[in-house]
């Protein structure tokens, strides 16, 4: 699509320079290794391929999470969302899950979405934890605002982390209740919820960086819905 750069300059919001997320490697329950790393803006078209099948999966609210994540990633790709980042989990190069968020300001981070493609391995838990790690430890923020759009998300984030409910502010995803992870709470919960080794051994990093492999639509549906 041809872009009018003069107009673009008016449409695009100025972005802050964000520190990058250093990749890490996690041993999964099945013994496989998941590399968690930051995706680049140019990776978005591939990520959208993986998200697209979820738009028609109502189970566990994958459709609403998928459609919003799709819009957020596309918005980032087309420079319509400010200060966004995206972390991905890859197993043998294959995309296992995606999380994204953004800096609302210097001190406050916004957790956007968490989407696990490989289910039953706590991919979502690992990636959500990585997202919190990114906000607090690498972006240097004081707190992260979080909301949940599915019971699984609510159980995972609000209960496991013991998040603080905040009634005086609105999470930008809409009217759902907003919760807060403070820096103190993050460090309190970190020993039991945030894991991963750095640096990632080169052979694993090479596979991950070479290509983001995306399973075909039928496989993604089967992984998510679990129907035989």
């Amino acid at each position: 699509m041809k872009v009018d750069l003069e107009l673009e300059a008016m449409l695009r919001a100025p972005e802050v320079e964000q520190p990058s997320y250093p990749p890490k490697i996690i041993t999964m329950a099945n013994g496989k290794k998941m590399v968690v790393r930051e995706a680049a803006r140019e990776d978005v078209p591939v990520l959208l391929e993986a998200v697209r099948p979820t738009l028609r999966i109502p189970q566990d609210f994958y459709d609403i999470v998928g459609v919003r994540l799709y819009a957020e990633l596309l918005g980032w790709y087309r420079y319509r969302v400010r200060n966004e980042y995206c972390l991905i989990g890859q197993v043998d190069g294959y995309l296992a899950g995606i999380v994204n968020g953004r800096m609302m300001g210097e001190d406050i981070g916004i957790s956007l979405h968490t989407l696990a493609i490989d289910r039953g391995l706590r991919v979502g838990s690992h990636l959500f934890a990585s997202k919190m790690e990114h906000h607090i430890e690498y972006l240097g923020q004081q707190e992260v605002w979080i909301t949940a759009e599915s019971p699984i998300g609510f159980r995972r984030w609000m209960i496991e982390y013991g998040l603080e409910k905040q009634t005086d502010v609105q999470h930008e995803l809409g009217g759902a209740t907003s919760y807060r992870l403070s820096k103190e709470l993050y460090y309190e919960t970190k020993p039991r919820l945030v894991v991963g080794d750095r640096p990632v051994p080169q052979e694993y990093l090479d596979v991950a960086m070479k290509e983001i492999k995306v399973a075909d639509e039928a496989t993604i549906r089967e992984k998510i819905i679990g129907v035989k």
Binding site: I26, T27, M28, A29, N30, G31, K32, G120, L121, R122, S125, H126, A129, P191, R192, L193, V194, V195, G196
Partner: peptide, 22 residues
């Protein structure tokens, strides 16, 4: 129902098992 291999490393030995197998 469950069609997934699990390993001792993944659910017990690795420090990452604290999240994998809470």
């Amino acid at each position: 129902h469950i069609e997934m291999v699990i390993t001792k490393e993944g659910i017990m030995d690795s420090p990452h098992s604290v999240v994998n197998n809470p």
